[in-house]
């Protein structure tokens, strides 16, 4: 099955730069400079699966009290974040971490900021059942949705079974894998050779970003601007959220969090795992100052000595990573 997809993808890549992954009815555009998507064998996208996932993503019925949906904290116009330090859950209580952007999840090797969840399907369970987020029992959701003829028939069409936790997690993952962002001005310059897409200041910022002087691109690397690794960047001298250590009990991993992508970074304030830095300018200042002392801080975090002009150049470059077509995509809005 996977080789069949590989063949189709290869065929499409050979045709144009934005390729179409077809599975009969589904058309998922993937930039040609992105790797192939390795879909789970039991969750290859179909029209019905994506539609079910989309319905679920925007459904407030999957939260306790029926007041919030996935989209409440992951809004497309904000690159699937919500602009808050931490999101507010179904019971009106704040969560513990800043809502991460949901983009290019199809290539993410593991989920959550400490990387403890291996698949996008499993990840869906966390926010739905977390008492500080949607706070609803998956079995209750399934039972309620099965009382809705539309959901039940869509579930049968998508997965050949009534709504259950398996279907809910698969459909949400299937829809989220369509959140593909690779049409920024940076992409146009680098991969489509459209040199008019960046000005001199932005190019200077790009040079700084990829220079050993800043080390930015050593962690924010590759086409997704992340190495998916875990680092302590010296945000605090003492971390209350211990990050990776929570997962592996290694004190040397205290305060380490997964490198976030920088795509659409302009649209996802506030920043850091706890939303403690409110603007991109302040983030640049933070890294320029070298962070706070911490015994396991990454050695590459040290004062950079960037002057005001260089900081502005770096900021200008980061704004080139915004994909306006992505955040304005109608497929990421609720269905009528």
């Amino acid at each position: 099955m996977r080789s069949y997809w590989g063949f189709l993808i290869a065929l499409c890549i050979s045709c144009n730069s934005h390729t179409d992954v077809l599975d009969g009815e589904v058309n998922i555009k993937i930039p040609s400079w992105f790797p192939e998507i390795a879909y789970p064998e039991d969750n290859v996208p179909t029209k019905a699966r994506i539609e079910l996932g989309r319905r679920l993503f925007f459904s407030e019925d999957i939260s306790a009290g029926g007041k919030i949906s996935c989209a409440s904290c992951h809004t497309a116009s904000a690159a699937f974040t919500d602009g808050r330090k931490v999101s507010i859950g179904a019971h009106g209580k704040p969560g513990k971490r800043n809502a991460p952007t949901l983009e290019n999840l199809a290539w993410m090797p593991y989920f959550m900021m400490e990387g403890g969840v291996p698949t996008l399907e499993l990840q869906a369970i966390a926010p739905i059942t977390d008492t500080l987020e949607m706070a609803k029992n998956l079995m209750v959701i399934a039972e309620e949705l099965n009382n809705d003829d539309y959901f039940k028939s869509l579930s049968l069409a998508a997965y050949g079974r009534p709504v259950d936790p398996y279907v809910i997690t698969r459909a949400l993952a299937c829809y989220q894998r369509t959140f593909i962002s690779g049409d920024s001005r940076y992409d146009r310059v680098i991969f489509e050779k459209r040199n008019d897409q960046m000005n001199e200041e932005e190019r200077a910022g790009m040079d700084l970003f990829f220079s050993p002087r800043t080390h930015c691109s050593e962690c924010h690397s590759g086409v997704f601007f992340t190495d998916y690794n875990f680092y302590n960047i010296g945000l605090y001298e003492t971390y209350t959220d211990i990050g990776k250590e929570r997962e592996n009990y290694n004190v040397d991993d205290r305060g380490k969090f997964k490198t976030p992508t920088l795509r659409n970074i302009e649209l996802t304030p506030p920043y850091m795992h706890d939303g403690s830095i409110s603007s991109l300018e302040e983030v640049i200042d933070f890294f320029n100052e070298g962070g706070k002392n911490n015994p396991v801080k990454d050695p590459r975090i040290h004062p950079l000595g960037l002057n005001e002009k260089e900081k502005e150049q770096l900021l200008a470059f980061l704004k080139c990573l915004t994909d306006w077509n992505f955040v304005q995509n109608a497929a990421f809005l609720p269905l009528e």
């Binding site: 403890g116 966390a126 079995m139 259950d164 398996y166 929570r246």
Partner: peptide, 25 residues
């Protein structure tokens, strides 16, 4: 993946009675 077990199984979403750790599996 607890969703792949039948509901009666102790490792399923229902059968695990909330003991599945969602943030870390």
């Amino acid at each position: 993946d607890p969703t792949t077990y039948p509901n009666s199984h102790p490792l399923s979403v229902q059968g695990s009675q909330g003991l599945f750790w969602t943030w870390n599996t």
